[in-house]
Amino acid sequence: MGALSQQPLFTSYMIISIASDFSVAPGPRYPWEGDNCGQNFRTKILVPQLHAAIEAGQILTVDLDRTAGYGTSFLEEAFGGLIREDGYSLETLKKNLKLHSKEEPELLDEISEYMKDADALAKHPS
């Protein structure tokens, strides 16, 4: 995923902060596993905002900072799930979704891997 500063200056952004707009303590993958799960974040916050951003020709930036930390299952369900469950293509996400984390920049690569894996699985289901 490209850094925020690498985007052209004229692009408009919509921003979601997981800490302010969802929870400071993101939880597991599914609702039955615990509160503030990845599935709820994706269906209630991320997908509607991403849809609006794509409609408006804007880029949606997701700020990952100021939370207590993330589990792999939350991140995979939230971002990999966009491809697996909601049918977005990797190309669309690369174009319209940017991630930002100053506190844990390594998360950006991890999420990128989850999205690539979900894309590979969607293209070649085993």
Binding site: A25, P26, G27, P28, G34, G69, G71, E103
Partner: peptide, 10 residues
């Protein structure tokens, strides 16, 4: 889970 994720972040 929350204790694990916050510990990993720290």
């Amino acid at each position: 889970m929350i204790a694990i994720t916050s510990s990993l972040k720290r």
